[in-house]
């Protein structure tokens, strides 16, 4: 297994270079090589979305992507979405509207939601439900997740309007 590839990744704005087996899954690269344990492994089959990250502007489930496929890409994980001193609106909103319980799906959920609101800054409830259907939650029943995302959208739009 010495068949390693030279990989370059930009993760949360930081460049990384390393040798990895091409079969290494991106989620393991992030969690075990780079110690970014925000994204989680829930199913290993692309169904649950706990591993969701943003790759070159698209929401991607990192448990079914080889690191070799991500070579050269820009990756954003939950760790790159906000910081303790400057939380993303969604991070505030999920807390405010009780959009999480055990927290296991939450990093993937917020990462996906942040992308959804870029794709569609003013979604209807139906569009949020459809746009988030790739992320499973076992605790909340989604009602408060949907509420959190709609509230965040409203807040982001208000900020945008105020800026204009």
């Amino acid at each position: 297994m010495s068949n390693k590839m030279h990989i370059k990744l930009n993760v949360n704005g930081e460049d990384h270079e390393f040798l990895a087996e091409p079969r290494e899954l991106l989620i393991h690269t992030l969690r075990e090589r780079l110690n970014l344990t925000g994204p989680h492994v829930g199913c290993e089959t692309s169904h649950c979305g706990a591993c969701t990250v943003t790759i070159d502007g698209k929401s991607v489930k990192s448990c079914t992507m080889f690191v070799a496929q991500a070579n050269g890409a820009e990756v954003t994980t939950i760790e790159g979405i906000g910081s303790p001193d400057a939380l993303h609106v969604l991070q505030e909103s999920f807390r405010e509207h009780h959009g999480l319980q055990c927290g296991f799906c939450t990093p993937g959920m917020i990462t996906r939601a942040s992308k959804l609101l870029e794709e569609n800054p003013n979604p209807t409830e139906e569009e949020v439900r459809f746009g988030m259907a790739g992320n499973l939650c076992r605790c909340t029943g989604y009602q408060n997740i949907v509420k959190s995302i709609l509230a965040a959208a409203a807040e982001l739009n208000a900020v945008k309007e105020a800026a204009q």
Binding site: L36, T37, G38, P39, H40, T77, I78, E79, G82, S83, P84, L87, L90, Q91, F94, R95, L100, G103, F104, T106, P107, I110
Partner: peptide
Amino acid sequence: DARFTQGKGNY
């Protein structure tokens, strides 16, 4: 929630 929303849970 502060930990969980920032990906700082410890599972």
